Amino acid sequence: MNKTTFRISQMDCSSEEQMIRMKLEGFDEVKQLIFDISNRKLEVYHTTDVEDIHQAIHELGLKDELKGTEEAELPIASDDEAQQRKILWWVLGINFTFFVVEMTTGWISNSMGLIADSLDMLADSIVYGLSLLVVGSTAIRKKKVAKASGYFQMALALIGFSEVLRRFFSDSETPLFRFMIIVSVFALLGNLVSLWLINKNQSKEAHMQASAIFTSNDIIVNGGVILAGSLVYFLNSKWPDLVIGGLVFAFVIQGAFRILKLSK
């Protein structure tokens, strides 16, 4: 058994992990993949030469670098997979619940910040769902699900971004800051619970590390919406809400592009 180590400079979340897994799914010689997202490292355990594997990874355009190949024994699979999946289902449920809550209250309160944050929650839900719901499916089905999810997220984000622009150039109402702050505080608490569940598992596996990164980013976004709501109150202006909404929509669009890469 051979172990080849790659450095993947642009591998910073589970989207890139899924891209690599799908790309190498048809390689019978690949026996196991071990991801270290924090260090941008991938270890491939395989039985034949690495040239074809390296070429497949290189085609993804993630700035890969082959660090070396050595003989090694195949690692024993982790026995806590069921616990990890249970935690990810909880995190998925929390994210999707707050997507619905924030989208609804965002329209009621006229807050683009809440609407954008809801789509950020949806983006994470899609990534978790892709990892959990299509396990064991064919590569073709996985790519179809990724493509549909990516386009759906892209469409919602573009509609939201266009609404931000419309409100910038029109006399739209000032959002209800109380809704922004209260709902975002609850979303923040939900993400803190998610992060606690993930960290409690103490897993070093890539998908759990990526989930922690996603959730930490969500906490920052929640704080941004709370800050925007406070500024709306003190300035009696719609601009803080539109600025934070536009920034979050930009991140959601970037996430949609990453998901769409999975379908290629």
Rank of each mutant, 00 (worst) to 15 (best):
A72R: 13
D28L: 09
V30W: 01
S170T: 15
S211T: 14
F177R: 14
I219S: 00
M154V: 02
P175Y: 06
T69E: 10
V100K: 11
G61T: 06
V164P: 05
T4W: 05
E29G: 07
G113K: 02
I34V: 15
L60A: 11
N2L: 04
I20P: 01
A146K: 05
S237D: 15
L88P: 09
F99H: 13
V164Y: 04
I57G: 13
V183M: 15
S216Y: 05
F161M: 02
L188T: 01
I34H: 14
F99Q: 04
G113T: 04
F168L: 14
L132D: 06
W107M: 09
L260I: 02
S137R: 15
N199A: 09
L189K: 06
T105S: 07
R7K: 15
V50R: 11
R258H: 08
V193H: 13
K86E: 14
K63F: 11
L158M: 10
D12Y: 04
V44W: 05
E73Y: 13
L158H: 06
N199R: 15
S230I: 15
L132A: 03
E173R: 12
T174D: 01
A148H: 13
Q32A: 15
D80S: 09
M19N: 07
F152L: 13
V248H: 06
A123Q: 06
V91D: 00
E51R: 14
E17T: 14
D49Y: 13
L262F: 02
S184K: 05
F249G: 04
L92P: 01
F234E: 08
S137K: 15
L88T: 08
N217C: 12
G26N: 14
L24C: 04
S125E: 02
P175I: 11
M121I: 06
Q83T: 07
L197V: 07
I226S: 03
Q32N: 13
L235K: 08
T104S: 07
N2V: 00
K261H: 09
A146Y: 05
Y128T: 03
P240T: 02
F152W: 10
N199V: 09
G93C: 07
R7L: 05
I115C: 12
D120V: 00
L132I: 08
G190S: 02
A212V: 10
I244F: 04
N2R: 10
V185D: 06
I37W: 01
L62A: 00
G68W: 12
H58V: 13
I219C: 03
F98K: 10
W107F: 12
A250I: 01
V100R: 13
K67A: 13
